Amino acid sequence: AKPPKTVTVKVEVTNADGETQTRTVTLTNLPKDLKPGDTVTLPETGQTARIVEITP
């Protein structure tokens, strides 16, 4: 079996106070056609994050 493909992405997350924070997260099994501006759900927090940058 192939190991899951991990991708490092820079995302913007809005916290409970309405502040936008930029975080770098490593995600696995992202859709192939994901692009900056799309939103993903962070598995560890369940927060919705907007992708700023994808590092191949």
Results as ranks from 00 to 15, higher is better:
L27H: 05
K32N: 15
T48V: 15
K10T: 13
D33M: 08
I51G: 00
K2Q: 14
D33N: 09
L34A: 14
T41A: 06
P36Y: 06
A1F: 05
P56C: 10
K35L: 09
T39R: 06
P31K: 07
G18A: 02
G46A: 05
P3C: 11
E53W: 02
T45R: 03
D38Y: 04
A49N: 00
A49E: 00
T28G: 15
P3E: 12
T24H: 06
N15G: 11
D33R: 04
R50Q: 06
V7A: 08
V25K: 01
E12V: 12
K32M: 13
V40G: 00
P36E: 09
N15A: 11
I51H: 00
A16D: 10
I51S: 00
N15H: 08
L30A: 15
R23D: 04
G46Y: 01
K10I: 15
P31Y: 09
I51D: 00
I51M: 02
T8M: 10
A16S: 12
R23E: 06
T28Q: 11
A16M: 10
T6V: 11
P43E: 08
A1V: 12
V7N: 05
I54R: 02
G46H: 06
I54S: 02
R50I: 15
V13A: 03
L34M: 10
T26V: 13
A49I: 06
V11I: 12
G46K: 04
T14M: 14
V11N: 00
L34R: 02
T26M: 08
D38E: 05
V9W: 00
L27Y: 02
T45S: 09
D38Q: 05
A1P: 13
K5H: 14
V40D: 00
E12Q: 13
K2C: 13
L42Y: 03
T24M: 12
T39P: 05
T28K: 07
P43V: 07
N29H: 10
L30M: 13
R23G: 04
D17W: 12
V11E: 00
T55E: 12
G18C: 03
P3T: 10
T14E: 07
D38H: 04
V25N: 01
E12C: 06
R50L: 10
T6P: 12
A16N: 09
D17A: 13
D17P: 03
P3S: 10
L30H: 11
V7K: 05
K5L: 13
D38W: 03
G37I: 00
T20Y: 08
L34F: 08
V9E: 00
T14Q: 10
P36H: 04
P3K: 08
E12T: 13
T55H: 12
P4Y: 00
P36N: 05
G46M: 06
V52S: 03
T8N: 07
E19R: 11
Q21P: 01
V52K: 05
V11M: 05
L27K: 02
I54Y: 04
N15S: 11
E12N: 05
T8I: 14
K32R: 05
A49R: 00
T39S: 08
Q47Y: 02
E44G: 12
T41D: 06
V25S: 01
K32Y: 04
T20C: 06
T6H: 14
N15D: 13
N29K: 05
K35F: 07
P43Y: 03
P56K: 10
T26Q: 12
T55M: 15
Q47S: 04
E12I: 12
E53V: 05
T48K: 13
R23W: 08
R23Y: 11
L42R: 00
T22W: 05
G18K: 02
T41N: 09
P56H: 14
K10G: 02
V11A: 03
L34G: 02
D33G: 11
T6C: 10
L30R: 01
V9G: 01
E53I: 04
P36L: 13
V11W: 03
P3Q: 11
T41M: 11
E19F: 11
L34P: 09
I54W: 04
I51V: 14
V9R: 00
P43R: 07
N15I: 06
V13I: 14
K32T: 15
T26N: 13
A1H: 14
K10V: 14
A1K: 08
L27A: 08
T48Q: 14
E53N: 06
V9H: 00
T24C: 07
D38M: 09
T48I: 12
K2R: 09
G18Q: 03
V7P: 02
R50K: 12
V9S: 00
I51F: 05
T14H: 07
P36D: 03
T48H: 09
G37R: 01
V40R: 00
P4C: 14
K32H: 15
P31D: 15
T22E: 08
P31S: 14
A1L: 10
A16I: 10
V13F: 15
T41H: 09
K2E: 15
V40Q: 00
T22S: 06
L34Y: 07
E12M: 11
E12P: 00
Q47H: 06
T39C: 08
P31Q: 13
P31F: 13
T26R: 10
T22M: 12
N15Q: 08
A1Y: 04
D17S: 12
K2G: 15
T14K: 12
L42D: 06
P31R: 05
E44C: 10
T45P: 02
L34S: 08
L42A: 01
P3R: 05
V9M: 08
P4S: 13
K10N: 04
T8A: 06
G46P: 01
T41C: 05
E12K: 07
V13E: 03
P56L: 10
K5W: 12
D17E: 12
D38F: 03
R50W: 02
V52M: 07
E12Y: 03
A49L: 02
Q47G: 06
G37S: 01
P4R: 08
T6N: 09
T6I: 11
K5Q: 13
P56E: 13
E19Y: 09
K10C: 07
T24S: 05
T48W: 02
T39M: 14
Q21I: 14
